[in-house]
Write a protein that binds this DNA or RNA. Structure first.
Length: 810
RNA sequence: GCCGCUGUGGCGAAACAGGCAGACGCAAGGGACUUAAAAUCCCUCGGUGGCAACACCGUACCGGUUCGAUCCCGGUCAGCGGCACCA
């Protein structure tokens, strides 16, 4: 019989859909295992082969875990709010809900075509009111605990999406999604206080089994730095608080810099303290009009204006020093003001050179500070020109000066983070409505929980407005409501939540997806938490992964979830590139559609190939030619299964090969080394072809292969009569065990080296003792010949058990 | 600029913990079967020299440690990723 993959795959997909062998049941005797992959955004393009890589890998892991006796939760859903759907809806005049629905139909059928062993009864969709009810509920809890607040501040505004962006969504000064320039805009925005969790988000990484890249990237992004806040007096009597990581260099502070947006500058302008007010205002205006891109691109040349009429006073020596404004000092970090120490900071040095500021060396050990700043923070620098700090190393001086500042009441130790609060509003339609109401009398009021979900109303037009208001703002019927507090007239918030809201907690919903009393039952949360293994893209490290850790920690703090971290283990996959190693894209015309591959070769080949393609963590180029190799492999398995002998016994000649393969595949799947697991099975098939094989041999191979090629294996399992004995492959719980002693052959081929160079090989009994191995080696023709040739004596022989013998001849 | 990762045949890649470099697969070449093609099966396949046995070279480059280095150490170059005026 021919391997008719199309018929076989259809047949088993229908059966599995009916009998649901992959349904996860909360509770029971078995140990639980929660495997998670990032749910897709259901775009109009459909499933990408790039999705198939992590999905197949975790499916293989989930299937193996089930066979090993675990109760496995492996769920799937759709992260369906977002701009592409909305933009498509606008362009084609179709409701985004309809677009989403259609796209999900397509995604679901593609996922089912590849037979991922999801529990389909737990499928979720972030745009369903029954789902986003709980997204809104979490927002209300954040509000109640003071972690959500509305404030007016300069935000990142994408000129194309006509929408604000979180800092995490701005990459190189342009919009992460569409690549359009991002400008600063003053807007009133909902914010989430992720900064309150900065320290815990760093600290708790230590106990997690995340790949190192993820940990360092998150730490980097949060950007902790320790130092001190120091209060300088201005000659006007005002306090200027600065943050510095180098309080030891305080005696070298020869000028100060405020950000152009600094509050004091405004005050001084208004009170007429500045003699060059016009210059100052012009500089402020110029800085405000710069986009993020311009600000970063212009970082070669420092600009600024010296404030005429006000000076700062260095608190350690009472010296009056000039104050500048410059956009190299950011309003949003630290206190928005710095003390400048040009001798020991590159940026200050550059600025000082341009504006003729004094450069005073306070740390010796470097080159001439008039020629370059000396920035070393280690023990090489010794303090000078710093009175009571003189002679100390930088490291020792920091605590001394910090204590001194604290005693004098002019400073204190301080930790700062680069992480900013999360800008949580978007001026778009297709997102979760923010369940808040504004009342002139009572201010912002939350909707009561029994009003949830606050449904997204139907609007005439989803077009974003040029004035920066959400399309919802035009829905006056919806906007005008009553205040939950006083009952008077009030208005609803018209901004919606960002794309990242729904995905910040979705893994919890899978645990109990149909619950209408809570986001999930206590019982389900207790049983399934935490996620045991989460695989996803590196691009989500500082977005989704960080956001969801933050939400989870909050939910833990208020007693909703039982663990302080959501994910125990995190791995990451490399991208699938196009045929030539270029990124797949429509414009390059190198996009591979999984449907075409499945049609031509079958889902089992697709799955096997995408696992065989290369190192899971590295990018890999798709190859239409190489797919054939995986198909050939499955064909050979099929042919062997058809032609094997009827014996249930293991063929003696195949026994050690089988045990070696079981060992290799078992270990490799857990390490995501699917490529070498498949290579090992290919080798076993080659062995079977050479030696012939029995039904018993095939049975072992089918068990190992089943997570990769489930349809074909299920068919063969039935054909060979195994199903009649132990039931369907999909329900097997006997992952094959290997016997270590049987992975060893009776004899091994050992390398013979002469003076470290390979000169021949010999067969020796396995585990032979060293003396016997040496004797056998010395007697070989290879050693004798070389002795003669080199005309020396054997001075030493090194034996590496079962591997090689190195004979040193001198 | 700073931090991290990577560099192995024509290609994708293997190599436990310092021990036979290139498993497995793709492509290529040769052969069998076939009227022919596809499919399948067999053989070759890092480079140079040699009929061969074999010898020499070879894991980005230069050097070191070692009986022995793709692996460890020092330096250089190239590529990728992240951060980037964060005081």
């Amino acid at each position: 019989m021919k391997y008719d993959f199309t018929a076989i795959e259809k047949k088993w997909q229908a059966k599995w859909m009916e009998t649901k062998p992959f349904a996860a049941v909360t509770g029971g005797e078995k140990p639980k295992f929660y495997a998670l992959i990032e749910f897709p955004y259901p775009s109009g393009q459909g499933l990408h082969v790039g999705h198939a890589r992590p999905y197949t890998a975790m499916d293989v892991v989930a299937r193996k875990k089930r066979m090993e006796g675990y109760n496995v939760l492996f769920p799937m859903g759709y992260d369906a709010f977002g701009l592409p759907t909305e933009n498509y809806a606008i362009k084609n005049h179709i409701h985004p809900a309809k677009v989403t629905h259609d796209n999900i139909l397509n995604f679901r059928s593609q996922l089912q075509m590849l037979s991922y062993s999801f529990d389909w009864d737990r499928e979720i969709n972030t745009t369903e009111p029954s789902y986003y009810k709980w997204t809104q509920w979490i927002f209300l809890q954040l509000w109640k605990h003071g972690l959500a607040y509305k404030t007016t501040m300069p935000v990142n505004w994408c000129t194309s999406c006509k929408c604000v962006l979180a800092n995490e969504e701005v990459v190189d000064g342009v919009c992460e999604r569409c690549g359009a320039p991002v400008v600063r805009k003053e807007k009133s925005q909902w914010m989430l206080r992720i900064t309150k969790y900065a320290q815990r988000l760093i600290d708790d990484l230590d106990d997690l089994d995340f790949i190192e890249r993820v940990k360092t990237q998150q730490k980097n992004w949060i950007g902790r730095s320790t130092g001190a806040e120091v209060t300088f007096k201005a000659t006007t009597g005002d306090d200027i608080v600065v943050f510095t990581t180098r309080p030891d260099t305080l005696f070298g502070a020869t000028y100060m810099v405020l950000s152009p947006e600094h509050e004091l500058v405004k005050n001084w302008l208004e009170s007429g303290k500045l003699h060059n007010a016009d210059d100052v205002k012009a500089y402020q205006a110029a800085a405000a009009s710069k986009s993020d891109l311009e600000r970063t691109e212009l970082n070669k040349e420092k600009t600024g204006v010296c404030l005429d009429g006000v000076k700062g006073i260095n608190p350690v020596n009472g010296k009056e020093i000039p104050i500048f404004i410059s956009d190299y000092v950011l309003a949003t970090y630290g206190t928005g003001a710095i003390m400048a120490v040009p001798a020991h900071d590159d940026r200050d040095w550059e600025f000082a050179k341009k504006f003729g500021c004094e450069i005073i060396e306070v740390v010796s050990g470097g080159e001439d500070v008039q020629k370059a700043a000396f920035t070393a923070k280690d023990e090489t620098g010794i303090l000078v020109n710093s009175e009571f700090l003189n002679g100390l190393t930088v490291k020792d001086a920091i605590p001394v000066i910090t204590k001194w500042l604290e005693e004098k009441g002019i400073g204190e130790a301080k930790v700062n983070y680069k992480l900013r609060d999360w800008v949580f509003s978007r001026q778009r339609y297709w997102g979760e409505p923010i369940p808040m109401v504004y009342c002139e009398k009572c201010g912002w009021q939350p909707l009561s929980e029994d009003q949830l979900p606050l449904l997204l109303p139907d609007v005439e037009s989803y077009e974003p407005t040029d004035d920066g208001e959400s399309p919802l703002s035009k829905m006056t019927d919806w906007v005008n409501t009553t205040c939950p507090c006083c009952g008077g007239p009030a208005k609803r918030e018209t901004d919606t939540m960002p794309q990242w809201a729904g995905s910040s907690w979705y893994f919890l919903r899978y645990m109990d997806p149909h619950n209408d009393k809570a986001l999930a039952s206590k019982e389900a949360l207790e049983y399934w938490s935490p996620v045991d293994w989460y695989n996803g893209g590196m691009e989500h490290t500082t977005l989704h992964l960080l956001y969801s850790r933050f939400w989870h920690k909050f939910l833990y703090d208020i007693g909703v979830v039982p663990t302080k971290e959501p994910y125990k283990k995190r791995t990451s996959h490399g991208m699938i590139l196009g045929e030539g190693g270029e990124k797949m894209s429509k414009s390059r015309g190198n996009v591979v559609n999984p449907n075409d591959v499945v049609e031509q070769y079958g889902a089992d080949t697709m799955r096997t190939y995408i696992m065989f393609i290369g190192d899971f963590e590295k990018a890999a180029a798709w190859s239409n030619e190489a797919v054939k190799g995986s198909k050939r492999f499955l064909d050979r398995v099929w042919n062997l299964a058809e032609s094997c002998s009827d014996s249930d016994a293991i063929t003696p000649a195949n026994e050690s090969a089988i045990h070696k393969t079981i060992k290799k595949v078992t270990v490799d799947i857990d390490d995501l080394k699917m490529n070498t697991a498949i290579a090992a099975m290919m080798t076993l098939v080659n062995t079977f072809s050479a030696n012939g094989c029995s039904k018993g041999d095939i049975r072992a191979l089918l068990l190992l292969l089943s997570p990769f090629a489930p349809h074909m294996v299920e068919e063969l399992w039935e054909m060979k009569g195994f199903a009649a004995e132990t039931g369907k492959m999909a329900c097997q719980t006997d992952w094959p065990q290997y016997d270590e002693s049987k992975t060893v052959d009776a004899t091994v081929e050992m390398a013979i080296q002469i003076n470290g160079k390979l000169r021949g090989t010999m067969h020796a009994a396995t585990d032979l003792d060293n003396d016997a191995v040496i004797a056998q080696a010395h007697a070989t023709e290879v050693v004798q010949r070389n002795l003669e040739k080199l005309g020396g004596k054997i001075v030493k022989t090194i034996v590496v058990k079962n591997k090689l013998v190195n004979v040193i001849i001198k």
